[in-house]
Design a protein around this nucleic acid. Structure first.
Lengths: 146, 146
DNA sequence: TGACAAACGATAATAATTCTCCTTTAATGG
DNA sequence: CCATTAAAGGAGAATTATTATCGTTTGTCA
């Protein structure tokens, strides 16, 4: 099921040249490290992995390439509102409307969304506390400017 | 519909003494600033608001109290995975299982969740890109330890 | 192969957050 | 009320995450 390294790298080269990105050794190893991680790594984690193959790589290069990958759609940030803590005053069940540009968060009444229904049971041992729906998009203000 | 300042503060005092928290001037003003903000403020934003009433307040105090409010359930973090960037390799539509303790994120197949249905239309001008379900809880590993 | 833009590495800078330590204040019990 | 004491506040250093700068190196493409 998993692509071979060779396929992975061929694919990477193609995606780079489509976008006019140079295929450097560092970039390739970073990409592979990302694709090899099953979960949702942080930049630090990627850096640690990559350093096993290129001990001299700079953390800045990892950050720069992650940013480039995100900007070119090879990758995404798992959290639509990352950067600084955002506080939730409303403790009643409710959902969120999140702008991917300015990161504004607007509450959505619980009744505004059909109840979330899981078809399969979550992994054994995971105690579900609540389900949050995040409607992601671009707010009016942001879609007007540019 | 909105509680008066007086009610708000009486309520705050009650919640503090229930939990053995001292009711200080700073703490009260921070609480009020939080409750007065309609959206999802960052600590910096709270600091800016509070400083209008207590210009000498320290940013550390604001952070400390926000943490205390969160720990005592008076407040929540809007983002279940905040702290450092988390990267999303899987670009196919899917959802997340998030541990509130260790912040682990596990992907949930798109088919594992009934499609999200909004009962009401999002605010005019908001262009919806996708809907993400975050199933929040405590993972097996974390619920075992303590 | 050579020119040139793009990428890299080192490191400084910035932003967000926590920690330390000393001083002040709220709670409480006489 | 007043004294005691633990909790809280303030100043600022420290830490962590991230971005920017700048001189050097390396892909890309003619």
């Amino acid at each position: 099921m998993r692509a071979t390294d060779h396929e992975l790298i061929a694919d990477f080269r193609a995606r780079c040249s489509e976008r006019g990105l140079a295929v450097t050794h560092q970039r390739t190893v970073i990409y592979k490290a990302l694709m090899d991680s099953r979960h949702h790594p942080s930049p630090e984690e990627v850096y640690r992995r990559v350093r096993r193959q290129i001990p001299s790589i700079s953390l800045g290069t990892v950050y720069k390439n992650i940013r480039i990958f995100i900007d070119h759609g090879l990758l995404r940030e798992a959290s639509p509102h990352h950067g600084c803590a955002r506080l939730e005053i409303n403790l009643e069940p409710h959902h969120h409307l999140v702008c991917l540009r300015c990161r504004a968060i607007v509450d959505l009444d619980d009744e505004a969304v059909e109840p979330v229904r899981l078809k399969s049971r979550p992994p054994a041992g995971f105690r579900v506390e609540r389900c949050l729906v995040e409607v992601l998009g671009v707010c009016e203000k942001c879609s007007r400017r540019k």
